[in-house]
Simulated assay, not measured.
Amino acid sequence: MRLEKKATVASSSVAALLVFLKLAVGILSGSIAILASAIDSLLDLIVSLFNYFALHNAEKNPDEKFHFGRSKLEPLAAVIEGTIISLSALFILYEATSKILHPVTMRHMSEGIMVMIASFVITALLVLFLNYVAEKTKNMVIKADALHYKTDLFSNGAVLLALLIIHYTGQELIDPILGIGIAIYMIYSTLPIIKEGVLMLLDVALDKEDVDKIIQVLKEEPEITNYHYLRTRVSGSHIFISFHAVFNNEISLYNAHTIADKVEAKIKQLFDDDKKVHILVHMDPYDDAEINEEEEEW
């Protein structure tokens, strides 16, 4: 099993455990903050299961129906995850506002505090593991999951602090105010995830730094007299690159093909091993960029 899949299994298991604990105590205590955290964990579970499905299918080889594979399932999963988090945050805002308008006395405070301590410790361990996997694999889905559980870690710590303050001061207004703060933070944290996912779905190009490295490889090859129509796009863990390489018209097709293979190998070395780089080289016997100038316009 791939490391990314192990990470989604771990996050799904943790989310399932936290949902059971938080829902039980949240309903018994009447705490909006704990209930909000429980709902967030329930959505975590749904998202983690979907992430497992996305990763499982994204790694499938191209077939007759999907000639370029299913790599876009990864950014799609990130967009769906960000959207679900945002919707859950809106629900938390609604519940917190309702409690401010219609106060409810909290109960079972000791149980709530114990559950939130356990949640904080378990989530902290999961965040450490997900950060390790995200750093090692550079996978967008795991990166989103790591960021998501990191926000959970902060919210769990905030809920725990609020419960302790309420327990010793009796100021229950802190509970819905904290719920509102958690909801706003959840929405704020999802914006980069949704943005990156949407950009990938729209075939965003590589960063300028990576494009410049590709150009440098082309310029360093003496047999390539020029290049044009350099195009790049990112789709999950896949990178697609295409360009026209101009050769001297006296070079043999065999030699031009050999040089193109060498250039492809050098370009692939620019990226991490976990990235699947697909390169298409069109070999021109003369520079036809000006002839097809209109096609170059964006």
Rank of each mutant, 00 (worst) to 15 (best):
A54G: 05
D152R: 14
K65H: 13
K136A: 05
I80W: 09
T123S: 12
F129W: 03
P103Y: 07
H67G: 01
T137M: 02
L130K: 02
Y149D: 06
I85L: 07
E59W: 03
I142D: 02
L93M: 13
F129P: 00
M109V: 13
F66G: 02
V115L: 07
K65D: 13
L55K: 06
K143T: 14
F129R: 01
E64M: 08
M140A: 14
R70L: 13
L87R: 00
L130V: 01
L126N: 05
I100G: 04
N61A: 15
M109W: 02
L90M: 09
T97F: 14
L126Q: 09
G82K: 00
I113T: 12
L126D: 02
L76C: 04
V121A: 15
M114I: 15
K72T: 05
N61D: 13
S119T: 15
G157W: 11
N139P: 03
A77V: 08
H148L: 10
I80V: 15
I85F: 01
V115W: 05
R70W: 00
F68A: 12
L130S: 01
Y132H: 13
R70A: 02
E135D: 09
D63I: 08
D145W: 00
A96M: 09
I80D: 09
T83C: 13
L125W: 07
V127N: 04
Y52F: 14
I84W: 07
Y149H: 14
A118P: 00
P75W: 06
R70H: 11
R70C: 00
F120Q: 06
L76K: 05
I80N: 11
G112L: 08
P103G: 10
H148G: 07
H148C: 12
G112N: 08
H56Q: 08
T105R: 10
E81N: 14
T151P: 06
A134G: 08
A58H: 04
L55F: 04
A144V: 12
L87M: 10
R107E: 06
T137A: 03
S110P: 00
P75N: 08
I80C: 12
P75V: 07
N139L: 05
F120P: 00
A96R: 10
A96N: 09
F120G: 05
G157Y: 08
V141A: 12
E111K: 12
Y132V: 00
M114H: 12
L147Q: 12
M140K: 09
L73R: 04
L128Y: 11
T83G: 15
G112Q: 07
G112E: 06
S98I: 13
N61M: 13
P103V: 09
V141T: 14
G157I: 12
L55S: 03
P103T: 11
F68K: 11
F68S: 11
A134C: 09
Y94M: 06
L76W: 00
H56P: 00
A144S: 13
I113W: 10
S110L: 14
I80R: 12
A58N: 04
L93Q: 00
S155H: 05
P62V: 08
G112P: 05
I142W: 06
P62T: 05
I100V: 15
K150G: 07
F53V: 11
F154C: 11
H108N: 07
E135K: 15
G82L: 01
G112W: 06
T137V: 04
M116Y: 01
Y132I: 00
E135R: 15
E64A: 11
